[in-house]
């Protein structure tokens, strides 16, 4: 959801006619603004502030420590390991979710053009919450009853989710990708169906090979959709997979792969390391900011060239 509507950053060109009233617009804005101030700006400022402080473990106030929390976090090998895993995890989830979504959309576009009922089977998983997907995943990778374990054994792979680091990572990636495919499918399909028939026909005449036509005509036309989805999938893999991971590692994070968001949660709520957790929050905020700025820069370009 996040960011989906944020593709346009410019201020609204005013309507030709508008009401003017000294207080009404403020009245209408008040509820939204109040909630945003209390539940967005206040905590955000707090996060930045407490990232510069060291909380006394016994609750006797806190001392200003400058950038120590940040240097501690960035020097910790554990944190860097988790950052590395998060990067790999995000890249793999994003790649496979996008690729599968695109493949299915291209095939569906050829086969079920315009038929809504057939799409249902491919999109309904969108409505399943990540932790619920994680629960089903856990069952499929369960040592006693899981069919995926049997399937892996068939190929001579003794898969141990929850015990073996890379096996758990594998299961997490599979579940996270599965959950995200419908979203990408919907957007790619609507992007494909937005390509005018005249363009399709011209492309068919010019280029016999279906595969080449895909690479030279369809994919460039889908580029805006793909780029938008790239950002959305990256934020999905970074943040929304929390539920999948939390269910799959079941509080035994020690030997299991976790992502940066999970680490923020663990340090903040389990370890009560307020300063360290806040510093990590701020680092994540910067990552999201970079992603968002990147997204807007791209959209600006797109607006210019279209």
């Amino acid at each position: 959801m996040r960011g989906t509507s944020g593709r346009e950053g410019q201020q609204a060109p005013a309507k030709r006619v508008q009401f003017s009233s000294p207080f009404l617009p403020y009245l209408f804005l008040a509820p939204q603004l109040a909630i945003i101030l209390v539940f967005f700006y206040w905590p955000s400022v707090q996060a930045v502030q407490s990232s510069f402080y060291l909380e006394d473990p016994f609750g006797f106030g806190s001392t200003f420590v400058g950038l120590t929390n940040y240097t501690d976090v960035l020097k910790s090998t554990e944190y860097l390991g988790i950052a590395r895993f998060t990067a790999v995890f995000t890249a793999l989830v994003t790649f496979f979710a996008l690729a599968t979504g695109l493949l299915l959309a291209v095939k569906a576009d050829g086969v079920i053009r315009g038929n809504a009922a057939d799409k249902t089977l491919l999109i309904w998983v969108y409505a399943i919450a990540p932790p619920v997907a994680g629960l089903i995943g856990m069952m499929f990778f369960n040592q006693h009853i899981g069919p995926m374990v049997e399937l892996a054994r068939w190929f001579g792979w003794d898969i141990k989710v929850g015990l073996d680091y890379s096996d758990t990572a594998f299961a997490m990636i599979v579940v996270s990708v599965w959950k995200q495919i419908p979203y990408n499918f919907i957007f790619f399909l609507s992007g494909l169906q937005g390509i005018p028939v005249s363009v399709r026909e011209a492309a068919t005449l010019d280029c016999r090979s279906e595969l080449r036509r895909f690479w030279t005509v369809t994919l460039p036309l889908l580029a805006p959709t793909a780029f938008f989805l790239l950002i959305i999938n990256t934020t999905y893999a970074l943040f929304d997979t929390f539920g999948v991971i939390d269910v799959m590692v079941k509080d035994k994070a020690a030997n299991n792969p976790i992502t940066l968001v999970y680490k923020v949660y663990m340090d903040g709520f389990r370890g009560s390391d307020l300063g360290g957790s806040s510093a990590q929050s701020v680092i994540l905020m910067l990552v999201v900011l970079v992603l968002t700025v990147f997204q807007f820069r791209f959209i600006e370009r797109r607006v210019h060239y279209n």
Binding site: P43, S44, S281
Partner: peptide
């Protein structure tokens, strides 16, 4: 508010 999801400011 679109810039920062809830997940990055959970503790505060």
């Amino acid at each position: 508010t679109l810039l920062l999801p809830l997940e990055v400011r959970i503790l505060p």
